[in-house]
Simulated assay, not measured.
Amino acid sequence: MLRHHFAHFDHVLAAIERFELTRTPSTLVDCIRAAAAVYGYEMFVIAAAPSAARSEFDQLVLLRHWPEDWFRRYVHERLLPHDPIAAQTREQYGAFAWRDVSWSSDTLQTTRLMEIASRDYGMRQGYCVPIYGIYGYEGAVSFAGREVDGAPSANAAMELLALYAMNQLMRLRSEEKAAQAVLSAREREVLTWAAIGKTAWDTGCILSISTDTVNKHMASAMRKLKAYTKTQAVAESLRRGEIQL
């Protein structure tokens, strides 16, 4: 038994090393697929928590290896509010197996969703790892497959794989954003406070700078974003990922 646990440990360590060597999201997908396949998982999705700027499923998905037809259907039919797995990730701190999630059989859309996923797309079993940070729920990694290893030691390995996969994805996205960023740190601060309704005077007090300096940073940000109004500048900076709410 001890040797079996060491095998899981060795596999996870090797997978983590491969994760850290990836330089693009597509290569990270391949590494996650290979690591999860050892435990019978064939598909996965990494999604962020909903926010004021992002609420639709296709906006929340950060990385995935899902059947393309199912992904389009899930988005088109707006199935996220009826997905009991997604709901559980926002309510439960620890990782969990799909089989442990219950929902009312009277909820026809939910029952239909789970039946279609299992019957038509091979998502018969799954394991989900909610991701929490200092500000609460930040997202989740969800794996699925036809026949998976649901032993406690395998689940522990999958949880570690999920956490390190998310960590590497965030690192890659951070590097990409840094390379594409056009705003200065101060301009992003000014826009962020404007996005939550603060006036230039409010922002100046918060940042300990003058109102005139706030307005200069805002004007500079508007020029860089090719925006004609503050509202447009806020919307564009959110779209680009320069700021987040």
Rank of each mutant, 00 (worst) to 15 (best):
H4Q: 11
L13I: 15
E17S: 14
R18G: 03
F19N: 04
E20I: 11
S26L: 15
S26H: 11
I32T: 14
A35D: 03
G40Q: 04
E42G: 06
I46P: 09
S51R: 11
A53F: 06
D58Q: 03
W66D: 02
P67C: 07
P67S: 06
D69S: 05
W70V: 14
Y74T: 10
P81E: 00
P81I: 08
Q88P: 02
Q88H: 07
R90H: 10
Q92G: 03
Y93A: 04
F96P: 01
V101I: 12
S102D: 14
S104K: 03
S105K: 14
E115H: 08
A117C: 06
M123T: 03
C128T: 15
P130E: 01
Y135P: 03
E138W: 00
A140D: 07
V141K: 05
D149W: 11
A151G: 12
A151M: 04
A157R: 04
L160I: 15
L160T: 15
L160W: 02
L172H: 01
S174V: 13
E176G: 12
V182G: 13
R186C: 02
T192S: 15
G204R: 05
G204M: 03
C205E: 09
S210L: 09
D212I: 15
M218G: 04
A219R: 12
K224G: 08
K230L: 08
A235P: 07
E236C: 12
R240C: 09
R240D: 12
I243Q: 06
I243T: 09
